[in-house]
């Protein structure tokens, strides 16, 4: 179970703050979050991933209480329990395809990069149709292929929560559907909760639930405007 309870986040060096009264997401649940640009959807994802720490309230993911964790503990939690997919893929262009999938294992000592992990990376790449390009530089991949690599990177650690921030924003219509199906499939395969921020209402049909972010955030009665930089 993922739950946020009376969370308040103050944007640094501004007078803006974001308040979320209550939000619960069940294990295995696939939730889409919609809302206008700048309302704080990305901030919510960053709070869920532990990148941002609220000034008050509680954020629980399973047994973990993120708000009581140190920075190092949240980093450790993030890399072991949360898979993230970004709008711009955010692959490391200096690495090859399979190396990008394995990246989480290279940057945090909490994860051990061994033979089974490498085999799983290959298997994941094959499952998304990229088995032939394991050693290809990601700069030589199409946009759709890159996002598939990003999804593989997000699920390689078998996270309990997958967060995707407008993962289809830069893709054409056909590829959007393919990528979204892939996300659902991979999340179901690992039994993870899936939270996707999207503007695209055509993609909502595959989700268990769709939430309007304005409604979630407005539950906090003292909510001010969200910050201009991190919010989207």
């Amino acid at each position: 179970m993922i739950s946020l309870d009376d969370v308040r986040f103050d944007f640094p060096q501004t007078t803006f703050s974001l308040r979320i009264g209550s939000l619960e997401i069940a294990p295995d649940e696939h939730v889409a979050i919609t809302g206008p640009s700048g309302c704080g959807k990305t901030t919510l994802l960053q709070i869920l991933s532990g990148i941002l720490k609220p000034v008050s309230g509680a954020v629980r993911i399973g047994d973990a209480e993120l708000t009581s964790m140190s920075d190092a503990e949240r980093r450790r939690f993030r890399i072991t329990s949360v898979g993230q997919v970004f709008q711009d893929f955010e692959l490391l262009e200096s690495l090859r395809l399979v190396e990008n999938i394995l990246l989480p294992f290279m940057i945090n000592g909490a994860l051990i990069l061994d033979g089974p992990v490498r085999a799983r990376a290959r298997s994941l790449a094959e499952s998304v149709g990229l088995g032939e390009f394991l050693n290809r530089p990601v700069t030589k991949l199409s946009q759709g292929e890159r996002q598939r690599v990003a999804i593989c990177r997000a699920v390689i650690t078998k996270p309990s929560l997958i967060l995707a921030d407008e993962p289809t924003g830069n893709l054409d219509s056909l590829t959007k559907l393919t990528i979204m199906k892939l996300l659902h499939d991979q999340a179901r395969a690992t039994g993870a909760s899936l939270v996707v921020v999207t503007h695209d209402h055509e993609l909502l049909s595959g989700f268990d639930r769709s939430l309007d972010f304005v409604e979630i955030a407005s539950q906090g009665k003292t909510r001010k405007q969200t910050g201009p930089e991190d919010a989207s």
């Binding site: 990148i51 190092a72 980093r75 993030r78 890399i79 970004f86 955010e90 490391l92 940057i107």
Partner: peptide, 9 residues
């Protein structure tokens, strides 16, 4: 920033 977001210290 990507490395940091993924959990790199």
């Amino acid at each position: 920033r990507t490395l940091f977001k993924l959990g790199c210290s």
